[in-house]
Amino acid sequence: MIKLDQFLKLVGIAQTGGQAKLMINDGDVKVNGTVETRRGRKLVSSDQVTVGRQTFKVGDVIQ
């Protein structure tokens, strides 16, 4: 498992934890199609994270 803010940094969407926090708080991040505002949300391999037009499947990134 990985936390949402850490995942955003890992895939390069956010360069810092602070930037990830702002994106999440502003409602710019969706998990499985639903806006997620908890930066500590734990992601599992089947989750999909969408920011703008980019969608990442957690299991494809985390091996």
Rank of each mutant, 00 (worst) to 15 (best):
M1P: 10
M1E: 12
I2F: 01
K3E: 11
K3I: 02
Q6P: 00
L8G: 06
L8W: 03
L8C: 02
K9T: 04
K9W: 01
L10Q: 08
L10V: 04
L10P: 04
V11T: 03
V11A: 03
G12S: 04
I13E: 07
I13L: 11
A14L: 04
A14W: 01
A14N: 00
Q15V: 10
T16W: 00
T16D: 08
T16H: 03
G18A: 10
G18K: 12
Q19F: 03
Q19I: 10
A20T: 01
A20Y: 07
A20R: 03
A20I: 12
K21W: 00
K21G: 07
L22T: 08
M23A: 08
M23P: 01
I24Q: 07
I24R: 09
N25H: 14
N25W: 01
D26F: 05
D26R: 14
G27P: 10
G27D: 07
D28N: 08
V29C: 02
V29D: 06
V29M: 03
V29N: 03
K30D: 06
K30G: 00
N32L: 11
G33T: 05
G33V: 07
G33R: 07
T34A: 13
E36K: 08
R39G: 13
R39W: 08
G40P: 12
G40M: 11
G40H: 11
R41W: 02
K42F: 05
K42S: 13
K42C: 14
L43R: 04
L43P: 09
L43E: 05
V44N: 13
S45M: 08
S45C: 09
S46G: 13
D47F: 13
D47I: 07
D47S: 13
Q48P: 03
V49P: 05
V49E: 05
T50S: 13
T50E: 14
V51A: 03
V51R: 00
V51F: 12
V51C: 05
G52N: 11
R53D: 14
R53C: 00
Q54G: 01
Q54K: 15
Q54M: 06
T55M: 09
T55S: 11
T55V: 12
F56R: 04
F56Q: 13
G59L: 05
G59R: 10
G59W: 07
V61M: 14
V61H: 02
V61N: 01
I62K: 04
Q63N: 15
Q63C: 10
